[in-house]
């Protein structure tokens, strides 16, 4: 439960409210993690929140988190000055286990900041691209200027044969792309292989609609994985903050298959 100390190496602004923070360990080696896992990030004297790791799980570079400034702790993290020391606990939780998709088609569906937790899975696919069949990324954002990782999106499409489709809720001057819901793109994904894996991350309503649409397209519910990012406090199964009936989302999740989540997600009071 004692956090490791990491120093802010650099920060990159991704859009008007989201920044990516690169951290170097003050002592010891880099933090090994699996794509989809999160850490508890602490700004000393302000607070601690769960944030997914958005960097490359295979690299030995800085520890990377992409943070949307929504409140006091996320603001203090996103705007931590280079050199500032932060606390890091973890990595915690289950990962995407994207390698289960080898030999088949993989569809990744992201909404808003949900692209950040999926980025490590995409980087893992890119590193062994030939082991997968068709790979598609369907990404919904609020407006064109909210779109994250524009350089990555281009590189995934051009250098790694990933079909990247971006759709926004609202257009802006000069936008010639699609406007609408990310779920409507699921109907047009090209599926070839029998073995299909779908990874979904975003607001819960969007994940629920996406999962239903993916199942309707023939993906088995146990191979539709969602990342459930509910409130968390301890991150290690002690406090019960993240409990969703029998599930502790910090331990059993955040990544869980839709067949386990469906009965819980459709209940408004849980």
């Amino acid at each position: 439960m004692v956090p490791r100390r990491f120093r802010v190496a650099s920060t990159r602004r991704d859009n008007h409210d989201t920044l990516t923070v690169q951290l170097e360990p003050c002592e010891g080696g880099p933090l090994a993690f699996a794509a989809g896992q999160f850490t508890m990030l602490q700004v000393f004297g302000v607070g601690e929140v769960p944030i997914s790791i958005s960097g490359d799980p295979r690299g030995s570079g800085p520890l990377q988190h992409t943070i949307r400034d929504v409140g006091s702790v996320s603001h203090a993290l996103a705007f931590a000055a280079p050199g500032q020391v932060l606390g890091v606990r973890g990595p915690y939780g289950t990962g995407w286990e994207v390698a289960d998709g080898k030999g088949g088609d993989v569809v990744l569906v992201a909404g808003g900041i949900g692209l950040a937790p999926l980025r490590p899975a995409l980087l893992e696919i890119c590193a062994e691209r030939d082991d997968y069949e068709r790979v598609s990324l369907l990404y919904g954002a609020r407006t064109p200027s909210d779109v994250l990782f524009a350089d990555d999106l281009r590189s995934w499409a051009e250098d790694h044969r990933i079909t990247v489709e971006v759709i926004v809720d609202r257009g802006e001057a000069g936008w010639t792309g699609r406007i609408g819901l990310v779920t409507q793109l699921i109907g047009k994904v090209a599926f070839g292989a029998d073995q299909r894996l779908a990874l979904v991350c975003g607001p819960e309503v969007m994940m629920r609609h996406s999962a239903v649409a993916l199942v309707a397209r023939g993906v088995e519910p146990q191979r539709v994985r969602l990342s459930m990012e509910r409130n968390m406090k301890c991150g290690v199964g002690l406090c019960g903050h993240c409990q969703l009936r029998e599930l502790f989302l910090c331990l059993d999740g955040p990544v869980l298959p839709f067949d386990r989540l469906e009965p819980l997600m459709s209940r408004a009071e849980l």
Binding site: R68, V70, G111, R142, D169, P203, M206, H209
Partner: peptide
Amino acid sequence: HSARVRLLDLYGGRP
């Protein structure tokens, strides 16, 4: 359906 869900402004509010 698309218009209604987008009215919720899901990506703008609570993630």
